[in-house]
Structure formats: structure tokens, C-alpha cells
């Protein structure tokens, strides 16, 4: 049946057992890609004509910023699936995605600030992208804070899913309005990232880093979701068995 795989995908137990096999491979892939990407990007990619070596922070900044935004959509879509099909696992993914996304947003902001010092001479400028990123961080924090406020997990799940969806509708409007606001107040001087005009010798290590970050993100998301699944299902038989095996030191 077409629905059967969907049903099984929704099963926390099936997810837990299946993803246990994936985790080491994802960890390996992200380790290799991130090592190759950072050595290549930091050590071998050429210097930028204008910014010198300071541009190299894009190898962290750009992938983090990419995933920060993508992570919000992953969170919202998981929440929507949970709301519509009442799938437990989907809510767990949503809840796991929130702190990971918030951390990535923070990393993007933090590396942006470090980059800002040599580029603009100050750690913080109200650049359109940075401002949007800051608002994205607030959106993440809102979801996390709302989740913590409820004592009942199931209510928290639904409330967060709804808030994430409302945020999703708003994100394009927020980004557009911040862009408009920025052009109004100061003309664009430096475009932070224009991957289209970037030289291939700089771009390939960046691409490696982006793919590496995606692997790392997936690994973290799955690992965190597995923890949440165990916490939420701990009274079920299969989790009890799983824990008992873990205690015996079995693998």
C-alpha cells in the first residue's frame, strides 16, 4: 500500500532502529567533508583581492546561514505533518530541529560579526542579511520558549507547530521588508555573499563545506530526534528492551 511506508516512517520504533545504522555513516561523511572543506578553504583557496584572508570565514558563515533558514522550514514542515497526520515522530523531529536551528543561526550571526570587524571596522552593522538573521534567531527562540512553557508535551508539540507555521508564512515578508528598510537607510556597499561571482577555486571548497554542513545537520537532527524518541517512549516495551541491552553493554 502507498500509505504503508508512511505509516512505518511515522513509527518511532522503526525510525529508531533504522537510523541507528545510518548514524555512523553520516558522522563519517560529515567528518571527511568538513575536514577536506576547511583545510582546502582555509589553507589552499586563494586570497581575496579586497578582503585578504578575512573572507575565509564564509566557509563557516555561509553554510551555517544556509542551514539556519532551511532548518526553520524543516522544523515547520515537520510540525505541519504532525498537525495534519498526527504523527508522533514528526513532532519529535520538529522539537529536535528548533535548538539546532537556533545554534546555527547564532553561529551565522557570530561569524558575521567576526567578519564585520575587519570588513567594516565594527562587530555589528544593521545590514539587511544580519538583521534578518537576528529576527530568525528570535523566531527560533520563540518556538523554543513556547515549547518549554507547556507542561504537557502534546500540547507543546501542537502549539509549536502552529507557531512555526505562522513564522514560515511571515519569513518571506520579514526578509522583504528588512531588505526594503535597509535600502532605504543605507545604500548597499558590500554584498556579503554572491556565490554566482565567486571564483571556482574559492567556490568548490565552499560547496564541500555546505554539503558537509548538511551531513552534520542531518546527523545532529537524527541523533537529537532519537534521544527525544527514547524520552517520549520510555515506558514502551521496545524502549525498555533497548535500554536493557544498552545497560548490558551489548551493541
Amino acid at each position: 500500500m502507498a500509505w504503508q511506508w508512511f505509516h512505518r516512517l511515522g513509527s518511532p520504533r522503526w525510525f529508531y532502529e533504522r537510523t541507528g545504522v545510518w548514524l555512523p555513516w553520516l558522522a563519517l561523511a560529515s567528518l571527511v567533508l568538513l575536514t577536506v572543506g576547511s583545510v582546502w578553504g582555509l589553507g589552499f583557496a586563494p586570497q581575496d583581492a579586497k578582503q585578504g584572508n578575512s573572507y575565509r570565514i564564509i566557509y563557516i558563515h555561509v553554510p551555517a546561514a544556509f542551514l539556519a533558514l532551511a532548518g526553520y522550514y524543516i522544523m515547520a514542515i515537520s510540525g505541519a505533518i504532525g498537525l495534519i497526520w498526527k504523527m508522533k515522530l514528526s513532532f519529535a523531529v520538529m522539537r529536535a530541529a528548533a535548538p539546532i536551528g537556533a545554534v546555527l543561526t547564532f553561529v551565522a550571526l557570530f561569524t558575521g560579526a567576526i567578519w564585520g570587524k575587519p570588513t567594516w571596522g565594527t562587530y555589528w552593522v544593521w545590514d539587511a542579511r544580519i538583521t534578518s538573521m537576528l529576527i530568525l534567531l528570535f523566531l527560533y527562540i520563540g518556538v523554543i520558549a513556547l515549547a518549554r512553557a507547556f507542561s504537557r508535551e502534546q500540547v507543546a508539540d501542537k502549539a509549536c507547530a502552529l507557531l512555526a507555521l505562522v513564522g514560515t508564512v511571515n519569513i518571506p515578508i520579514i526578509y522583504k521588508s528588512v531588505d526594503w528598510w535597509f535600502t532605504l537607510h543605507q545604500p548597499a556597499t558590500i554584498k556579503l555573499t554572491q556565490s554566482s561571482s565567486i571564483d571556482p577555486s574559492m567556490f568548490y571548497p565552499l560547496l564541500t563545506m555546505i554539503v558537509g554542513f548538511y551531513c552534520l545537520y542531518t546527523w545532529t537532527l537524527i541523533a537529537h530526534t532519537r534521544t527525544l524518541v527514547l524520552q517520549r517512549e520510555w515506558r514502551t516495551q521496545w524502549v525498555q528492551q533497548e535500554l536493557a541491552e544498552g545497560n548490558r553493554g551489548g551493541d
Binding site: I135, F138, L139, I141, G142, V143, A145, L146, A149, L163, V166, G167, N170, I173, I174, K176, S177, V178, W180, W181
Partner: peptide, 17 residues
């Protein structure tokens, strides 16, 4: 405060325009 936290970012476009 939680209400402020979750609603404020959504207010941004209205404030800007």
C-alpha cells in the same frame, strides 16, 4: 513575556512600513 517573545518578530514588517 513569552507572548512578547513570540509575537514581536512577527510585528517587524508592520513596524518597518
Amino acid at each position: 513575556l513569552l507572548l512578547a517573545l513570540i509575537v514581536m518578530p512577527l510585528y517587524v514588517p508592520v513596524l518597518i512600513f
